[in-house]
Design a binder for these strands. Sequence first.
DNA 1: GACTATTGGATACCTCTACTCTCCAATATA
DNA 2: TATATTGGAGAGTAGAGGTATCCAATAGTC
Lengths: 208, 208
Amino acid sequence: MRISELSRRSGVSVTTIKYYLREGLLPPGRQTAATQAEYDDQHLHRLRLIRALTGVRGLSVGATREVLDALTEHADDTHLLLGVALGSVQVGGKPAEGAAESAESAEVAALVQELEWCVHDAAPARAVLAETLGSLRALGLPLDLHTLLPYARLAERTAVLDLDQLDGLDDPLEAAERALLLTVLLEPALMALRRMAQENESARRHLP
Amino acid sequence: MRISELSRRSGVSVTTIKYYLREGLLPPGRQTAATQAEYDDQHLHRLRLIRALTGVRGLSVGATREVLDALTEHADDTHLLLGVALGSVQVGGKPAEGAAESAESAEVAALVQELEWCVHDAAPARAVLAETLGSLRALGLPLDLHTLLPYARLAERTAVLDLDQLDGLDDPLEAAERALLLTVLLEPALMALRRMAQENESARRHLP
DNA sequence: GACTATTGGATACCTCTACTCTCCAATATA
DNA sequence: TATATTGGAGAGTAGAGGTATCCAATAGTC
């Protein structure tokens, strides 16, 4: 198919598709002539992936490119892929600058040890957690190990559910993409579930 | 204190503080003269709150203002506050436009019914969940009720932990602020925990 | 084969956000 | 009195994420 059909089928304007091509988010089509290129279903799929990451999840174009690059480069090693790709996808807002303050970092390390988790020292999630704990403390809501532990146990069980869904996939590329989708795209869904559960729990406690 | 001290103590530049004042994120100080105003610890606290919401959580200035407004207006009703405020805080990226497609919305409704949750019909989290499910389906990863249920049960237990932390707070303003912090600011922390748990679980399964 | 529409490619432009800079008169401080 | 600081307002800036325009080459249509 050509670019206009790609546009029609994906709902993304031609100019935006050209923009994604320029930015390297979408691989170029197969050139059939000097001013003609051919796109296929993989391009369509990739385009949907881009829109899901930037739209639903709110990733920046740069972060999306890094994730997609990691996907094509490390498709054979899901474990490595997740490490590389998820480094590009900040959990919250901006990436934290500089080395984390030692106070909360040590706290995170203690938590990981208590949980007996095997987590890389440079995992970005450590810094995110430490920074969040620091902010909460500065706002007068210190979360100690004791409070955090049950949350971590629930996260553990969530991760088991996640990994279960990757079983039985033979194609490594497919498994890698599914891993990404489950990790990154499921986040808004899980947060939405939490909010609904909060509303329900709040109603149970505060309403007659 | 005056603006320069507020700046020094918060780490936010004077010009940025002025910007927040202009945008209505920060209430004006007590005027002591035509070109002099006095700020107090509440301003400092509010400033830290603003930086946490925009920085750690990545909220836009507009969304932050809505959240803070809801906080001061509905401090007496935590249940209502969460409903109002969390509407302004999108879970993922952009707010979804228009009415959700009926397919996934019906799926979400079925899930809520199955869970016997009490969730408002217009809760934004419903739309977020529906949209995410739609994206995942378009990408070839349909999540059915059966897959989603265990995630929802874990969310339920997370919500219990959240609400437990609001018990025993007498000051309604304090309770309201804590509710916001726990809901909004804890999200990056929970996602970071999930990623670390995934790395751990992945290592347990794939590494010798 | 002529004619019109579409295409790929490049460049310039636009809008929005979140600041940041500059200026000013009034005031605090030495 | 001299110098620095302040509050306030408006203009300016940088980056993100597109959008619009132009161009020559080509595809489809008659």
